[in-house]
Design a binder for these strands. Structure first.
Lengths: 232, 232
DNA sequence: TTCCGCCCTCTTGTATGTAAGTATGCAGGG
DNA sequence: CCCTGCATACTTACATACAAGAGGGCGGAA
């Protein structure tokens, strides 16, 4: 377990939020393995806080389906379930596709130009294969689309469920051409927006978002114990 | 304040969840007025529980934007914000419209028949003007659509944000023809599903969902102090 | 050997105590 | 009269103590 004492008083907000972020990141990075039992007491000791903020963080994580709390028994990291991943994909796709349609009708030339600059920066970063930096710019891209649509809340919700997608994605081997493909697809979305074509924007974005899911069966074959057995 | 001692041990689950439900219902019914300050201590005393479950309930309500917690100052019921209501509408509309498209392609004859029976029961209830019972059947209708789409999570998320819409709706005067109109629109959605027409199903459902928002300006004029002042 | 019952430990849920910060009312000086 | 400074009463955030229940190990009886 790589979770360790978090530094307090660093102006990073209340302890419960810091614990929440730390746990969420650890779960998505599979530093906590799916199915693993985690204990409020142990976490509190390791993080050098009391059980109260740990408990509040776990409640939020339960609402996001990252942990399952069973009274008088324990708290468990949820196993990856194909249904849950598809649910997350459905929510993200529905919201972002609706947003990009709005964006196509609302964005002005300056907005499009700014988005173009973002995609150019992504192209530069992708040359060096810097996945981490690219992930940040990718989030900015999708957030910007929701912002242009006048619905920043769409990105907030999408980001919450996106954790489930990221947990799966991190298990897949890094594909060498992956970043370049992402940039190319972002360019297609950008073009559709530039032409103020809602249908094209939605179609290209939908295709783009579905790329993530394509690797799911392979990942499941590789880590069968991380997945929930399906019920037919 | 109509919140009162909740009966424990009634098998209704943990106290924190009961408190959560009670507070959420009270806020949506505007028994707690928008902007009003609510105190952990006072709530705990009235509900005959300790501050801990009250606090956990308030944290969940903060995540859903029903209260705003200001450290060392107080917890306040959020005022109604036009932006927040439109956000809720956007999320619900995006998810349910995407779901009804799926439902139109996946539902079989038995599903359609069951949905038809539900609409018929709605028609009966609407005759008597039983708004409360109708609300239950209305929720069942929208939940069923998401179920038919194979995405029950869509209804879970929609239901969460729907609270913000309900809080507004309850402030509007009951329109005599309202229930009948709702049933008629449900019938239109049902017909589109029966003909397996995703485009028509989406269009009719979208129109149906937007009815709620139409009364917003009038409500705002009637209860200006319940609303947040807009920033331009 | 196998099964039943007890006990002990660990878990989460709840209650209560402590700390720290903000708004408010009041007293006193200009 | 008006402004300033402080004491006080509140608030939430966090820490700790207690309660209730589930699971596993162990011993004894059949």
């Amino acid at each position: 377990m790589r979770i360790d004492r978090l530094r307090r008083g660093s102006g990073a907000g209340p302890a419960s939020r810091q614990v929440y972020r730390a746990l969420r990141d650890a779960i998505i990075a599979t530093e906590f393995e799916p199915g693993q039992r985690i204990s409020e007491n142990e976490l509190a000791e390791r993080l050098a806080v009391s059980r109260t903020p740990v408990r509040e963080a776990l409640i939020r994580l339960r609402d996001e389906r990252f942990v399952q709390i069973v009274p008088q028994l324990g708290t468990f990291v949820t196993r990856i379930s194909a249904a849950a991943v598809e649910d997350a994909q459905f929510i993200r796709e529905s919201l972002e596709c609706a947003a990009v349609r709005l964006a196509a009708t609302r964005a002005d030339d300056a907005d499009i130009a700014a988005l173009g600059g973002l995609v150019r920066r992504q192209a530069e970063v992708s040359e060096f294969g810097d996945h981490e930096h690219f992930a940040v710019l990718d989030d900015e891209f999708h957030a910007a689309i929701c912002e242009l649509a006048g619905r920043p809340v769409a990105w907030e919700v999408a980001q919450r469920v996106k954790g489930h997608l990221n947990r799966v994605r991190r298990l897949s081997l890094p594909q060498p051409r992956y970043l370049a493909e992402m940039v190319a697809e972002h360019r297609l979305v950008l073009e559709a927006l530039d032409q103020r074509d809602p249908d094209a924007a939605e179609a290209t974005l939908r295709h783009h978002l579905r790329m993530v899911l394509s690797a799911l069966p392979a990942i499941r074959a590789q880590h069968p114990d991380y997945f929930e057995e399906e019920r037919p």
